[in-house]
C-alpha cells in the first residue's frame, strides 16, 4: 500500500481505469450478445433475425438501447418509489462486481484474491435482492409472483451450483481462480470437465436456472404472469435489468470456461506439432472463444427446449441435482486423495 496522498490518488485512478477497461467491453458484449441471440434464434427458426438497421442489422442493439433510454420512466402509483428505483441498481451491482476476480489471462485480472471462488458465490447470491425488491416494490400481483418464483428458483439452484464448484476446488486445491486454471494445465484431457463430467453438465444447467433463462424462465413466463418481476418497469429501468441478466449470462459462461475447460489455456497444449506453435500457448483469445461457445449454448438451449413446469424445476434442483453433486464431490475427494488426478501436470 503506497503511503503519500499522491501515490494513493494515482493508485485509485489506475484502479478506476482498470475497472472501466472491464466494464465497457462487457457492456458492448451485452449489446452484441442480444444481437447474436436474435440472429442465432432467427436462423434456428428459419428466419433472418434483425437485418434492417445498419449493415446486416449490426446497429440494431444501439437502436434498442436508445429507444429504451429515451422512453419515459413510468412509476406505478402505488409502488414504493424508492425501492422501485433502487431495485435495478441492486441487480446490476453484483452482476458487474463479480467480474473483479475473473482472470482473463495469466496476469490480466483486476483482483487476484485468494478467496476468489467464495467471492463469486457471494456476489451471485446477492443478485437475488434486486429481483425480490423489484417484485415487492412494484405492488403488482404479477411482479410479486414472478419475484417469488425466481427467488425460490435461484436459492435452490445456487446449492447445486455451489456443490459443483466445491468439486472443482477439491481437485484444484485452491480458491484462487488463477490457480484453479493453472491446476488444469496439460491439454484437453487434463481440464476438469472430464473427471467432473456430471458436475460440468449440472453447472451449465444450474447456470441456466440461475440466470432465469429458458427453459427455466418461469419467473418471466409470458403466457402466465406477463413478464414477471420487471412487468412494471419501462425505459431505462427495464434496460438495466436487461443489462444485468445478460451480464450474468456472460459471467456464467466465463465461469464455466474457467472452472471446467481450462480458462485461457490452449486446447492444443501438449499436442506434438500444433502445440509447439503460437496456438499451443495460453492467451486471452482461448478464454474468450470458450466463453463464446458457452454463450452460444445458452441460446441453443433457449431455441430448443420448451419451458419447464414449476414443480418439475424444483424437483430437478433438489431431488436430482443436489444428490448427484453431493455424490460426485465425495468421488472427487477420493480421486484427489488417492492421487488419481495430478494437478497442473
Amino acid at each position: 500500500m503506497p503511503d503519500t496522498w499522491m501515490d494513493q490518488l494515482i493508485y485509485m485512478v489506475i484502479l478506476i481505469l482498470k475497472i472501466v477497461a472491464i466494464v465497457v467491453p462487457l457492456i458492448l458484449a451485452v449489446a452484441y450478445y442480444t444481437y447474436f441471440e436474435r440472429k442465432v434464434i432467427g436462423y434456428m427458426q428459419i428466419r433472418r433475425g434483425p437485418n434492417r438497421i445498419g449493415p446486416l442489422g449490426l446497429a440494431q442493439p444501439f437502436a434498442d438501447v436508445f429507444k429504451l433510454l429515451l422512453k419515459e420512466i413510468v412509476l406505478p402509483e402505488n409502488a414504493n418509489k424508492f425501492l422501485f428505483l433502487l431495485a435495478p441498481v441492486v441487480t446490476l451491482g453484483p452482476a458487474f462486481a463479480a467480474w473483479a476476480v475473473i482472470p482473463f489471462d495469466d496476469w490480466m485480472v483486476l483482483a487476484d484474491i485468494n478467496a476468489g471462488l467464495l467471492y463469486l458465490l457471494a456476489m451471485s447470491s446477492l443478485g437475488v435482492y434486486g429481483l425480490i425488491i423489484a417484485g415487492w416494490a412494484s405492488n403488482s400481483k404479477y411482479a410479486f409472483l414472478g419475484a417469488l418464483r425466481s427467488t425460490a428458483q435461484m436459492v435452490s439452484y445456487e446449492i447445486a451450483m455451489g456443490f459443483a464448484l466445491i468439486g472443482v476446488l477439491i481437485l484444484a486445491g485452491t480458491l484462487n481462480l488463477r490457480e484453479i486454471v493453472l491446476a488444469q494445465q496439460g491439454g484437453v484431457l487434463d481440464w476438469f470437465w472430464l473427471p467432473l463430467l456430471p458436475l460440468f453438465v449440472i453447472f451449465i444447467i444450474s447456470g441456466l436456472a440461475e440466470t432465469n433463462r429458458a427453459p427455466f424462465d418461469v419467473a418471466e413466463g409470458e403466457s402466465e404472469i406477463v413478464a414477471g418481476f420487471h412487468v412494471e418497469y419501462a425505459g431505462s429501468g427495464f434496460a438495466v435489468f436487461f443489462l444485468a441478466e445478460y451480464a450474468n449470462m456472460i459471467l456464467i459462461s466465463a465461469l464455466t470456461a474457467l472452472m471446467f475447460t481450462g480458462g485461457w489455456l490452449s486446447p492444443f497444449e501438449g499436442i506434438p506439432v500444433i502445440g509447439d506453435t503460437f496456438l499451443g500457448e495460453g492467451s486471452i483469445f482461448w478464454f474468450l472463444s470458450k466463453t463464446v461457445v458457452f454463450m452460444f449454448i445458452f441460446l441453443w438451449v433457449r431455441a430448443t427446449f420448451p419451458r419447464y413446469r414449476y414443480d418439475q424445476i424444483m424437483r430437478l434442483g433438489w431431488k436430482v441435482f443436489v444428490p448427484i453433486t453431493i455424490f460426485w464431490v465425495m468421488f472427487a475427494a477420493v480421486i484427489s486423495v488417492f492421487g488419481l488426478i495430478v494437478r497442473g501436470s
Binding site: L118, S125, L126, V128
Partner: peptide, 11 residues
C-alpha cells in the same frame, strides 16, 4: 455475505 445476506435474509 454468502450465508446471512445471500440465504438467511432472503428467506
Amino acid at each position: 455475505i454468502l450465508v446471512y445476506v445471500g440465504a438467511v435474509m432472503v428467506l
